[in-house]
Amino acid sequence: MKVGLFFGSFNPIHIGHLIIANTVKGYAELDQVWFVVSPQNPFKSSKSLLPDVDRLKMVELAIEDNFELRASNVEFSMPKPSYTVDTLTYLKERYPNHHFSLILGSDNLNHFHKWKNYQEILNHYGIIVYPRPGTELEKTKEEIKNHPAIRMVEAPLIDISATFIRNCIKNDISIKYLVHDSVAEYIEDKKYYL
């Protein structure tokens, strides 16, 4: 099975995440996309970051009608801070018949050479890169930009951020159409981000 791994805090998951996952799945001919919910970094304090289980629950709610998308809490039980290379290694051992690819926005590719053991990721996993608004790949190191493991895919340029959504909630502005209806209901019921 070909699986794309879409890492993020998903605080909250929004319609942009869903559009990107669905589009990348099609263009990269993946069987599934797993949303890997990243735990809170213990070295960073963030009052707006919801607990891991709540962010996972919102991902589950947002994708419950699409069997090709899956929520993953794999990093919740891993040592922190979690590094992508360690998560990939763990998943490869646990699912030896799966082929994993990393789904990255083009903005992250510019800093990819700073990631822990980035060459190991390039050598053993595919990297699927979707465009992000206002990002140029000129800053990307040539060895990364032209690496055969990296595949650029078409995707809409979506400029929705979780920060914008949280600010809407704080300012009592509707988040309808920015998040899945079930996610909006969950946030409202729990009175999150107020």
Rank of each mutant, 00 (worst) to 15 (best):
G4M: 05
L5D: 00
L5M: 07
L5K: 05
F6E: 06
I13C: 03
I13Q: 02
H14R: 07
H14F: 02
I15V: 13
H17I: 05
L18G: 03
A21R: 01
N22E: 15
N22V: 03
V24Q: 03
Y27E: 15
A28L: 05
A28R: 02
L30R: 02
D31G: 10
V33R: 00
W34N: 05
F35P: 02
V36R: 02
P39E: 11
Q40N: 15
N41K: 04
F43Y: 13
K47D: 15
S48T: 14
L49S: 11
L49V: 13
L50T: 09
P51V: 11
V53P: 00
R55G: 08
L56N: 01
K57N: 12
A62M: 05
N66M: 04
S72W: 02
S72D: 08
V74Y: 00
E75R: 08
P79W: 04
P79V: 06
K80S: 10
S82R: 10
D86A: 09
L88V: 10
L88S: 10
T89S: 15
Y90P: 03
Y90G: 00
K92E: 12
R94G: 09
Y95P: 09
P96E: 09
N97C: 10
S101A: 12
S101D: 09
I103V: 14
G105K: 07
H111C: 10
W115Y: 07
N117L: 14
Y118A: 09
E120T: 15
I121A: 09
Y125C: 12
Y125R: 12
Y125P: 12
I127D: 00
I128Y: 00
Y130M: 11
P131F: 07
P133I: 06
G134E: 13
T135I: 15
E138Y: 13
K139G: 13
K141H: 12
E142T: 13
K145V: 08
N146R: 12
N146Q: 14
H147R: 08
H147W: 04
A149E: 08
A149Q: 09
R151M: 14
M152N: 07
P156R: 06
P156W: 04
I158Q: 05
D159S: 13
A162H: 01
I165Q: 04
N171P: 08
D172L: 14
I175W: 09
V179M: 07
V179L: 08
S182I: 00
A184S: 11
D189I: 09
